[in-house]
Design a protein around this nucleic acid. Structure first.
Lengths: 83, 83
DNA sequence: GGACTAAGAATATCTTAGCCG
DNA sequence: CGGCTAAGATATTCTTAGTCC
C-alpha cells in the first residue's frame, strides 16, 4: 500500500487522521495512531480496511496499490467516469 | 488481495505454483506452499511481492486488489493498451 | 485538536514437514 | 509433478501511553 497516496487523498477530502479512521470503522482509541502508521508506511492495513478507506475517500479499491502516479491518475479517472 | 484472481492469472499464463513463486523470487523450499496460501486466502503477501507476481503475469500492480470483476477487466485493458 | 513515536501485547505470515492424486 | 494442510518459528500489526505544536 502506498501511504503517501492515502495521505493525499485524505487531505483532499478535508479529513483528519482521526475522522478518516473512525469513518472506516477503526476503534476510537487507536484510529488516529493507526492511520498515521499507514500513511508513514510503519505498518500496512488489511485489504478490507484499505477498501473502507477507499469508500470513504471516493477512490477505487485498488487506488492505494498502484506505484505509478500516472497510472493511478488514469485508474481514478476511469473510476470516476463510471459513477 | 484477491487470491482467486492470482490463481486465474497464473493458470492463464500456464505456470505452476512453484514456477510462479520462483519467478517472483521466493525461496525454492517454500515457493509452492506460499503461492498456495496466497491463492486460497490463508495468508496475504506483502505488496512488493504482489507487484512481482504482477510483473511475471503481465498485469498491473493493482490487479489483485480490485474486488469488482468488471472493473478489474477494464483496468487490465487500460494497462495492456499502454504497453 | 491534530499529528507523531515507542514498546509490549496480540496477531499474522513463513518455513518445515507430511500427505494426497 | 502439482497441489493442499498443520504447526511452530518468525515477523508483523495493534493497542496503550506519552510527547510536541
Amino acid at each position: 500500500m502506498i501511504g503517501n497516496r492515502l495521505k493525499r487523498a485524505r487531505l483532499a477530502a478535508g479529513l483528519s487522521q482521526t475522522k478518516l479512521g473512525l469513518a472506516a470503522g477503526i476503534e476510537p482509541d487507536s484510529a488516529q495512531q493507526r492511520v498515521s502508521q499507514y500513511e508513514s508506511g510503519r505498518s500496512i492495513p488489511q485489504f478490507q480496511l484499505a477498501c473502507r478507506f477507499a469508500d470513504v475517500l471516493n477512490v477505487p479499491d485498488c487506488y492505494f496499490y498502484i506505484r505509478s502516479e500516472d497510472f493511478a491518475e488514469k485508474v481514478l479517472d476511469l473510476y470516476l467516469s463510471e459513477k
